[in-house]
Write a protein that binds this DNA or RNA. Structure first.
Lengths: 225, 225, 225, 225
DNA sequence: TATGAATGAGACTTCATTCAT
DNA sequence: AATGAATGAAGTCTCATTCAT
């Protein structure tokens, strides 16, 4: 009979000007880092709502008061945690090859693998995004950036006559990007076991992607199944 | 006129039932319905976390205590609200036509329109699903049901040699279903304005869907762009 | 982590004049009796504080509202239950014999057996006596009456030169009466198992009693052990 | 300045520790002690059931929330209060004399005087013992310890041929210990005036005790009446 | 900077009792 | 007399944040 806690006070828009310790001292830096690490661990373990500032401090081995030397609020530290994560979800470092198929495949795989590696915090980000507009925006902008990079690629493909020219790049990019994002959640943030395999998911997502864009390569070998 | 405060739990019987009004009387049924309606309104307005039981009661025009005649907790009434909504997101009663393209198109449109009509509560469901496993499961099962219906259709298409036989129906169904769900959120639950049009989204999603499945119809007129 | 409920409102001194159904109808009498029976059962099961009026009604098979047709409050019905019980704890019907030893023995045995037979409600009476002065007084007066009957007997024994004339009857009566009451609780209302046997307790209490009063009978056979 | 209400229980970690201040600082220790003192005063004044945590805090001069820094609940602080009291009810340190009669007398007097000095809290302990098994057990174990010390002494008397060998030490100890406990309640926790004098009660209890055990001292002067 | 105690608003929930039918 | 829904006062407990040392 789960019931749900209130975290409270101060959210979007702390206009307090208090200078917080930035960790200029090496000791300060260390404390701050410990708090960040602890926060991530606690958030992953308990979710944002149930995470208590006190728990974070305990986990970090600092006193409760110290927390506010470095962070304005629970929300703020959460954003800091978020900013330190997920940075590379879209790191389309697929630059290893020129083969379009391989690049798509690599991007998909990268997304899923990175998501898997960060599933714990991703789940919490997902949660807070439904609560806090700032975090929502972070998430949104990342997904949007992902979509934009896809969009550029689609245009390139169309320009190269590799992709169906009827496809609207902007819509398709969002749709396909969302599809991958959705699948990642399905695979790695389900409360119930799912019958999907990550490797196969990469293959299938890539196939759909190629089909969807109408990419017909000269020698497009079906992805290894 | 001294009064005796009470002791809860302990003594001998740890757990106590609690006869919740099932609305045997028409008056009871009415109150219950008022509470459900009020709850939905308050949840949409304030979100789950900020909604207070007291607000729901005020909105329903009942006394504070009446709430607990009918519901155990805010969580429970929320689940009841959820169960009364979204019932037809998947109502793929697109049976008006036999044309596969039209059916896909109809299903997508139905999904988006229904989502749009319920965007307020959908946003909250989305929120609570990240908090309450029961609600998550409701959501998940619905999306899964959606995917299963897609899966069946894909198999049919493949059987009829209309769709790419290499596509894995189970994966594709989840992916495409998720894509639509994602797009719905993008369109109707964004905090920032988005540059997408619902009608066009239906067209584009359908096109991607058709492409993805490799559906090549004899005389498939490209959806109006 | 037992915590403790508040029952509330109205206790000693309900000065309301509302005429309550006295059960003049035979149907009314029946309902009233059902409530009394149910109340005793619920009080024994849950204790006074945790017993809910609603539970009593459920147990009795009546509606919640009906309760107040017959009783003013939870407290009142409890007193009615008390009055219907324990009446014979002191029923010193030891008149079967003239042998003083046997009479004492019989009284002790009667007390313990009667207590045992009513241990459930006795425990609750005990509880409420610490809360409600009226109930405390009922209990006190009964114990006092018990003591007074003992006192009379002691005086008789002294008058007959059977008992130590130095013993103060009033003090001894309270002490010995309290001793028996205490032992009854020990035997029958312990939360933990105790290593005492009822029969042997009767013997030993009687022996102490006799010794205490210095009763030296011509042919005083030690009580069968 | 929106705030986020929280969700309790559920999510992943059902149970949460809660670092209760153990009073590491002297300031903390002081607050804790103030709360304990205040609690005792409030419990004595209002009884357990009517005592509110808020009252205790007011009495202690602390904020409402501070209470929970030190105690989990009203029940817990009550147990702590109990543990700090009554510690010497059984302190049969009557070792000033070797005279058995005097020792018994001293023990009885000690019990009554100590009870008298703590009658207020004893009454509440008595009350809570009928509600909370833990408190019942504390009480029970103390009385049991009292009885055991009596038992040992009885065995010693029997071994020294001072006491009736037919008396069962275990039963007699409980009976006599209970007798004293009962009398203490009668004297000091009656709602109505009682016609007993403490000094005389000591005398009479001692006499009964001696008689009961059949202690016949060489030159036992009857206690002053 | 660090510490850990103090603060206090505020939501939830219970259930005896009343009331309209 | 019976029914069962409605009422609402009241008390517990949480935890983010502040503060004194």
């Amino acid at each position: 009979m789960a019931s749900i806690p209130n975290a409270s006070r101060g959210w979007q828009g702390e206009t307090r000007a208090k200078r917080r310790g930035t960790g200029r001292t090496s000791r300060g830096r260390q404390t701050r880092d410990q708090l960040l690490d602890a926060a991530r661990a606690v958030f992953e373990r308990d979710g944002f709502l149930h995470a208590r500032v006190a728990d974070i401090c305990d986990e970090a081995g600092t006193s409760h008061g110290s927390f506010y030397t470095y962070f304005v609020s629970k929300e703020e530290i959460f954003r800091k945690v978020v900013e330190s994560v997920e940075l590379d979800l879209l790191a389309v470092n697929a630059g290893t090859t020129d083969d379009p198929v391989e690049r798509i495949r690599a991007a998909n795989e990268h997304y899923l693998r990175t998501y898997a590696a960060n599933a714990g915090i991703m789940r919490v980000i997902h949660q807070v995004a439904t609560i806090d507009v700032d975090v929502w925006r972070i998430r949104f902008q990342r997904q949007d950036a992902f979509a934009h990079s896809i969009e550029r690629r689609i245009r390139q493909f169309q320009h190269d006559h590799l992709a169906d020219p009827d496809v609207e790049p902007a819509y398709a990019a969002q749709a396909l990007g969302g599809m991958v994002a959705y699948f990642a959640e399905l695979l790695f943030n389900s409360h119930d076991p799912v019958a999907f395999d990550t490797d196969k998911a990469v293959d299938e997502l890539t196939r759909i992607w190629l089909n969807a864009l109408g990419i017909r390569l000269p020698a497009a070998p079906a992805p290894a199944s």
